[in-house]
Design a protein around this nucleic acid. Sequence first.
DNA 1: GCGCCTTGTGTGACCGGTCACATTCATGCC
DNA 2: GGCATGAATGTGACCGGTCACACAAGGCGC
Lengths: 345, 345
Amino acid sequence: MNVTGHTRRPASIRDVATAAGVSYQTVSRVINGHPSVKPSTRERVLAAIDELGFRRNATALALASGRTRAVTVLTANTTHYGYASILQGIEEAARAASYAVGIGVLESADEAAVAAEVQRAADAGGGLIVIAYDPAGVRALGAVPAELPVVGVVETPATPPDPGHPWVWADDREAAYQATRHLLALGHETVHYVAIPSSTRRTSARTTGWRQALKEAGAPEPRPVQGSWGPAGGHAAGRRLAKDPAVTAILCGNDDLALGVLRALHESGRSVPGEVSVAGFDDAPHSAYLTPSLTTVRLDFTGLGRSAFALLHGVLEESARIAPHPVSVPELVVRESSGPPPAHD
Amino acid sequence: MNVTGHTRRPASIRDVATAAGVSYQTVSRVINGHPSVKPSTRERVLAAIDELGFRRNATALALASGRTRAVTVLTANTTHYGYASILQGIEEAARAASYAVGIGVLESADEAAVAAEVQRAADAGGGLIVIAYDPAGVRALGAVPAELPVVGVVETPATPPDPGHPWVWADDREAAYQATRHLLALGHETVHYVAIPSSTRRTSARTTGWRQALKEAGAPEPRPVQGSWGPAGGHAAGRRLAKDPAVTAILCGNDDLALGVLRALHESGRSVPGEVSVAGFDDAPHSAYLTPSLTTVRLDFTGLGRSAFALLHGVLEESARIAPHPVSVPELVVRESSGPPPAHD
DNA sequence: GCGCCTTGTGTGACCGGTCACATTCATGCC
DNA sequence: GGCATGAATGTGACCGGTCACACAAGGCGC
């Protein structure tokens, strides 16, 4: 119990040492669990630590040893459900491993801005996790200097990445494949796709899965409609699709886009799922409560975040390396927004 | 340009010093903008800095000077729209001031767990921002040792807080007041309220605003229905309210609750806004795209986050103290979910 | 009884910065 | 000319830990 008034600076190992009548090095040994310390000495030191309320200074530890026990998450956004959930998952795992979690937002995808953010993150020391679902994130992941430990949370890669690239991903492609097959199985001639902005120039994993399902079913492949991330983009895309009476099934790159599409269909007087079926992606918490409730594919973002941290943890400390890429399995959730196409054709 | 291979450890001020032919202290002076350095010397040092790609080591800076330039945000959740937006606002302002942002999630409101999280945050050094909208946050804010610089993001306090308590808030009470008056002005006899969990034992600010509007209008005051944070809670509350034919207007503690209420009304066959009007709180991005689109009160969470950081920044560095509590003004957004009560009565 | 290994502990340097103070030299003033 | 003043720079200690090494005491083999 420390009853002295005054804001005194926190106790250091030397304070503890004098209080326990040992050298500071012995204190260091005790707090690091070094074996060769006499039990009676250890007791005395522990008592002194308790008495003075000693806590090891993280800054000094980092400076002296290089071990930082910190991770910085680089992301373009913190408010989108998927991003926020990944962050939450990372924090959860990091907390369990008593790592500190820092966050840097990539406000612009501009080359220089991204580089500056990466630098800032590097300055923080410790490892990096980059959420690379969008151009800013992808660019950031590419801009990380090779000597920095980094894990990327990415879209399903087209080909297995080099072992030198520690990446995690949810199986986007499989998820899109499942959702598309679900819609086709209901009897729709084809499925239109409202895409999220692709993270790279190349086609996104979600698009690939959708395309694959269409191809297997011999369904015609309409041009994907480019959306944005939020419901506004879905709304705009939905307006265009609503005009075409041939459109009876729409897969959306995420639940927010789907929401916008639903709204646009409603405004155009086209009923869901009577005339048009809609499926989303992610299973955001509100999707189950929409009217009509949204058919979607659930991705375990929190788990993905945990995996990302686990992978980074493995890179930073040689203990407990995990399996190469722990991919979580997407789960189709069928709700009200999907059904058979209108009877007549 | 550093073309040497090998992962060499980053250049320190002494490396720069020898490269420039000066002492390390002179380098320190240059990077800190100390006035009395001969221009020619400064030039040489800057050139060396550039050449070696020197970056000041944040850890060493923190250890030696005590200045940490970091802020840790303590929050119960990162995925809810309001929380995530506040975080985004804090990060934005912190980035502008080149502060690092850390995050700690209060997974449980349990006394010991909260205390541990606060300790962890304290270990990170720098300032603290606690989002205290819920029991876990409130408890955390209370558990912060007095000597730590901390800013609370709180509900509108009932009475002006002591100057010793640097807090920021959006005007919840005014927002609830506005929304309630809007519904009453449409002709509803009274307005029912589905509450978010109160952060404290005492009545929440939102409840107070609602109550005040009812009282001023001489409307009867129904018992508030206790909800949770997510749509599920709203759904449960909505089910109960839907059974009572006297209920024609419902104000919800946030947009997620409102979503659940809308869904429950729909399931009970009560039309919105024909039979029942619903208003939310926060103006989450999806609220405008619901069917019916949601009448709500927009709160500037991002701005609130920026204010929180600005206040903390003022506490940490004596430069540029800001006005006591910069309260952002809520804005009523009227959409489809509110309208006059059913004609007959 | 000597050397040697193991156990328990202490000493000094170091991580990369900052701070307080000392030093040098040019200048201005009386 | 002597001396205070200020500009420009350097030196040593320090922040709070860790690391490499030294060293004393005790047990064991021969």
